[in-house]
Design a protein around this nucleic acid. Structure first.
Lengths: 343, 343
DNA sequence: CTGTTAGCGCATTCAA
DNA sequence: TTGAATGCGCTAACAG
């Protein structure tokens, strides 16, 4: 014996003594239905436990009412906020979020897979997409880059990495550091690249080559060891993210090296641990939830334009403002109470 | 001038000189199509940039090939791993993930919204769902609880909070703590409840009432202040999660209270900061990615059974094993090298 | 304000 | 191995 058949518009229409069109209207445009009938319909819907079939609706309305969100398979606290911001804004606009996490060459496949089920896609880590695949997808739905993707010709939603990096670096310079080194591989992501560029600009006319490592704690530990071994010379490390910086700091301090006395260390993201490590980490905070919301909002605009027929959807949003959180690891905050503000 | 019309099975069929049925087969059951025609079809698909329309496919096949994943609007590092594990497993099974973040009373609405577009739903924080809404949804698709939801009659995928809590508490007892207090509100979530139960069991025959606060850093700070003010008496705090524990630790140590000397503090989740705080935090690590994967896998089973006609899908998976990570805050790890293992 | 009707794009019978 | 035809559940004209 199977379950009761799923109620459909017809089932509801029957019970409410109306036509299916009226049921549809009662849901989509209540004002186009008389009070009385609308109530009857709603009663029927409630009584039958009717839930519209999403696919049928999408097919008929020629709109999925869903956004694709493609993120790299990285972990980190960063994501929770990003998702929160994105999902909220998407939901506000009536859109669901189809999430795809991609780690390698399955990226293209996954994106194609969801491309058939969403009205538009936001991709973080778009650089890993084969040009051909991206082109095919963009034929179908608008695609936005998150944090990067300019290299793929995408409009990108991101933060002001250049500015924050310049500020951070300049700050270190002004406080007497003159053997600064950037830790992180600019080729790994566009935002890291921008951070390195800002670093270079602040160090005009010549900045040293970056230490090309992955943005992880483990890599930070390695870098610290190289420093301790004398393979690397620096009195200040501008790290591509906090994980890296944290790895550096614990290793350095554990081995008796004074941070920030001997070496200043700064990072990006303001992860929770940045406030707990000793010394606390000077870092760049990004409006991550806002970043997500902005991307969702902007994608909605793109979708509208795309459907309306290819017109470009007005000016792209500015890159989001970031703020440097000065703590102890840069050696410049003498006032601990000031630090507390940023807890 | 509009964009080129989206290619459909018909477009592809035309170009490949076959019928739409063959196109469909070439994609869904390649072995049922001759080598030659299949190649022609694939060529056409490639040339036209054809991507199947997800909604049309779902409607015709009567399967969305998508999971709904509903999470509370909390933030935290926890989620990245959970999503990673879930998405991977879902993708492996060919299913997309529709993510919904719910913060309040919009929960029911959101769940209903996605219920029409997925084959099954995993809900974390199901207790916030009105019974009626849940019942209606379960009529439509199978629903699983993540971390909780037993109270709503859901099968739940979770970890062994009871065991880990008992172990943690017993450990503190064995090392001489005899004024232990549980920090966190058992009524806020089933897992916190289980943690409190384990705490109580270890403290047979009578355990003190819990300090009912939200599981946040701020609340931890408050609790620490109460302790310092003498409003609370304890030589050990079993905190419902790491945020709480961290808030307690920094506040206590900043005010000259010795952790773990005067008060031992332990938590749950093993967030990154747990390793960086001074003293490092003894905590419970949960296999979060595995938790996600297990939920996805199990939901798939439920979906299959549900469609096959209401049969119960075999034994539910065991609650996942957790591991206590002994660090310094419990005052029991004398060997720092041992601690390093868990970095 | 309401009902009738024609697809949306695809999978899947059933014949051939 | 292939094609023709039907319908999934819904929305959106179009009539009334």
């Amino acid at each position: 014996m199977g379950r009761a058949a799923r109620p459909t518009v017809y089932t509801v229409a029957d019970r409410a003594q109306v036509s299916v069109a009226t049921v549809s209207r009662a849901l989509a445009a209540p004002e186009k239905v008389s009070e009385a009938t609308r109530l009857r319909v709603l009663e029927a819907i409630d009584a039958l436990g009717y839930v519209p079939h999403g696919a049928a609706r999408s097919l008929a309305a020629d709109a999925h009412r869903a956004h694709g969100l493609v993120l790299p398979e990285l972990v980190g606290p960063y994501y929770s906020d990003l998702l929160l911001g994105y999902e909220r804004e998407a939901a506000t606009g009536g859109d669901a979020v189809v999430l795809a996490l991609a780690g390698g060459d399955d990226l293209a496949a996954k994106v194609l897979r969801i491309a058939g089920s969403v009205d538009g896609i936001v991709v973080m880590g778009a650089s890993a997409l084969p040009r051909a695949a991206l082109a095919a997808i963009r034929e179908l739905v608008p695609v936005l880059g998150l944090t990067g993707g300019a290299g793929q010709g995408l409009e990108v939603i991101g933060t002001r990495n250049l500015d924050s990096s310049r500020e951070l670096t300049q700050h270190l310079v002004e406080h007497g550091r003159n053997r600064l080194v950037f830790v992180g591989d600019p080729d790994l992501a566009e935002d890291i690249q921008a951070r390195y560029r800002g670093f270079c600009e602040a160090l005009q006319p010549h900045a040293p080559e970056p230490v090309r490592v992955e943005p992880s704690e483990a890599a930070g530990v390695e870098v610290a060891e190289r420093l301790l071994a004398g393979e690397l010379d620096a009195d200040g490390l501008v790290c591509a993210n906090d994980e890296l910086a944290l790895g550096v700091i614990v290793t350095l301090t554990a081995r008796g090296c004074d941070v920030p006395g001997d070496v200043a260390v700064v990072g990006w993201d303001d992860v929770m641990a940045a406030r707990y490590v000793q010394p606390s980490l000077t870092t760049v905070r990004q409006p991550v939830a806002d970043l997500g919301a902005t991307a969702a909002r902007r994608l909605r605009e793109h979708i509208a334009a795309f459907r309306a027929g290819q017109l470009p959807p007005g000016p792209a949003p500015d890159r989001l403002m970031t703020s440097v959180i000065y703590r102890r690891s840069c050696g410049c905050t003498s006032d601990p109470s000031k630090e507390q503000e940023h807890r």
